[in-house]
Structures are given as C-alpha cells and as structure tokens.
Write a protein that binds this DNA or RNA. Sequence first.
RNA 1: GCGGCCGUAGCUCAGCCUGGUAGAGCACCCGGUUGUGGUCCGGGAUGUCGCGGGUUCAAGUCCCGUCGGUCGCCCCA
Length: 427
Amino acid sequence: MPCMADDSRTFSAPKGTKDILPPESWRWQRLTRLAMDMFALAGFAPIVTPEFEHTELFERGVGNASEVVTKQMYTFADRGGRSLTLRPEGTAPVMRAVLEHGLERGPLPVKVAYGQAMFRYERPQKGRTRQHLQVGAEGIGSENPLLDAEIIELSHRFIREAGLEPVLLLNSIGHEDPSCRQGYLKVLSGFLQEHADQLASEDRQRIETNPLRTFDSKERRTVEVMQDAPLLSDHICDACREHFNEVASALTDLGVGFQLEPRLVRGLDYYTRTTFEYQVGGLGAQNAVGGGGRYDGLSEALGGPRLPGIGFGLGLDRIVLALANTGAKSEMTEGAVHVYVVALGGPAQRAALKLATDLRRAGIGADLDLAGRSMKGQMKDASRSGARWAVILGEDEIAKGTAALKDLRSSEQRTVALAEVPAAVRS
RNA sequence: GCGGCCGUAGCUCAGCCUGGUAGAGCACCCGGUUGUGGUCCGGGAUGUCGCGGGUUCAAGUCCCGUCGGUCGCCCCA
C-alpha cells in the first residue's frame, strides 16, 4: 500500500483513519439509514451535536479515571485559548445538549438518536481506528426499567436486522452509594489487597485507581484470581436488584435472549445499574460491536438536576467488519442507476444529457457517458452500472424523435418515442 | 506507550536467500462488428520497487535509520 506521507506530491489519510469508498460505502449508508429509521419508529428523534466540546465536559462526564479521558482524547487549544476535545463518545454531549436547552422541562423521557463519528487517540488495530462511526440512542429522564428493556430490545433488533447474531451480555453495577456499589468496592479492594501478590503488576496498580476494571483483565494470573472475587451482583442494594430483575423479565417478555454476566464492566465511569454489551466473532482482538447502560448520575455530574437515563452506542465499523466475516453476500454493489443513456456522436451527447436529466427529474435513476467512450465502451459501462435499461440515441433516433430501448437483462430491444421513455422504463 | 509481521503497477502479489537494464493475474482503455453490454480473442497505457543514508563497478535485492500499514498487548464501539 503506497504511503506517501513524506512525499511532497501526494497525501495519505492520517494514521488510524480511513476512506470509505464505493462499493463498500453503499453498505455504510444503508446501515446508517436502517438504524436511524428503526430508531425513529421507536420514537427516537435525530439529534446532531458538535464534533468537539469543552474538554471539561468529558472530564466530568466520562470520568477522570477512565482510560478514554486520561489517554485517548484528541484535545487541543483553539485560538481563543479554550481547551476543546473531539467527541470520544456520544452520551455526554447529548446530555449536555439536553441540559443546555432545557429539554428536561418538556415531556419525558427525551428520546434522541444519532449517527456520528467518535475520535479516540489509540494505536490502530483490527476493528479499532482513531475515528469511528457510532449509531446510538438515548432515553433521558426516566428510571423505569421498561425503558431499559425498550432501549436494549431496539439495539438488539438493529444488530440482528443488520445481519449479525450477537450475544447480549447483561449486568447491573448498582449505584453510587455506600449501601450499594461503594460498599462493594471496599469489599473488592480488600479482596484484591489480600491477593495482590498473585495479580499481574498492571492490575495491582488498579486496586487504587479503578478496582472494577480488574474484571476486564486478560492476564491469566489475574483472571484466575478473579474467579473467586466477590461479585457486585451479590452486593447491590435491594432497589437496584429489583430494578435489574424487572429489566431481565421484561426482556424475556419481549423475546430478547441474554446472558447474565456478573463480571461485565464497562469503561465509562458514568454507568450505573443496567449495563450491557453485544459480542460477535470475527473482530480480531476486539469482540464488542456495541454496548450501553444507565447513567443515572451523569446529569448531576455535569451540574444539572437529577435526570436518570439510559442509552447505547454501536460501532458501525465493527458491524461492517463482522458482516464481512459472516460471508454475507455483499449485494452492496447496486447503485440507484436504472437507465443508462448511450449517445452516438458528439451532438447526441447533448440530447443524452437532456434525456438523463428528464429521467432524474421524474425520479428515475439515470446515468450516461461523458468520457467519450465508443459505443461498445458505453454498453459495457451501462452493464457495469447495474442499469436495467440502455437507451440508445444516434443520429437516426434524434432525427425521428425516437430512442432505441434495450432491456439489458433479456437483451430485447425496441424503438419508442423519446417522450415515452420515462413511462417505458418504469414498468 | 510496548512487541511481531509487511511496504514492488489502480488492486492482489511474484522477484529479494545466491546484487547485473521491472514482472504476473485482475481491473482499465482500444480493436476484432457502418451503431449494441455481461463470454471469447488480440493489442495498449501504467511504476522515483515507501522515504533517507551506507556498502558495491553495479542495489527492488545486502546493512542502518525513518515513515507508514497491519496484527497483538493495554483499552474500547
């Protein structure tokens, strides 16, 4: 692959970014539309937030202890000296927008959906780039466990509709209170201290900073120790347990299969209670195509009122990657061109452009050759374009006000009046 | 931030070990048909062999550096 970063004549895309080119770009567009349409059918309206925010939003929202904030943010100072950061995740910006515009004073829950790029400064590898596209939805302003179920069912259905068979992992991580998660963290820290000498050194450091994350470790020694670690699910408060049971039974009602995963921990600090993650194969070292959870304390962390909510984010890049692995036929090559207008001779080109334009104005996909190809070349290009019909305009046809209409599937050809072409190709 | 592998035509890659004038397939364009595609046949264009330095009469090939890609660790969608 030519890389010309140090060549003065050409450029390459920045490290960790990529271009999405035809024909693959069709699949991306289709998936994004499918997501936003499905979310809309469930009452989630589109929202668009800025590509960058005040750095402080993520520090306070996502959490200073999280890896995303400490190591992975694209932070820069603008000309006014403000510290800004390219959006690394979608939920904090949405909550900020809700609070800024007082949407929480309207009907609740606020239900919004997005399809936007996220930026994280990481070492690229399979399924991980520095800019990736996520589709997601947020339901803000309700504690009802049925909202959890609604959100989870929606994300689950989208992944399946996209063509994957995900495993849904479900857990509750309780809420921030001595009677619940904080109490548990003391128990867990105690346990980790006791076994500190058996942990991998990197995990030993996390006892102080973020003990929950030791459950994520892939170090064999740590994993073995964690087999016997006390589980959060055994220590959450009654209210959280009840909430979780409601979510689980509602999901069962809806026919959504899930797997309880008491060790599931997610990387963003704002999560409370319900957390979930979707896993599929074929992603290399990565295995999650998406996830989400409740963030009942996020609004208050940002200085707003108590405003519980839940949402999810799904990585389009990983979904596309996993799809390629299923061997799912990529019928993504077909564009929207239905008619290809073949022009014979320079003067005919003008008539061909006119006809193609008329067809487009009538809502019919049409293309033509403006590169000066031979007739054979144009017919080949017509075939390549995926068009069903070829309309041939030569001197004879123009003189008579007709066109030769060829069905590219059956190879049948007939002559029709020029004005009747749109009607003829509609059938 | 750390480690493995890889940079040769638009794409996939051979050539590198054993230094001697740059190759294949696919794709693209033209022709085989006074105006007819998807098959077939013939022809054609295309490369600072990632970049910089070193060794040598001679470097795509050997050595050093560098940039990039890729996969993994960490973490996450």
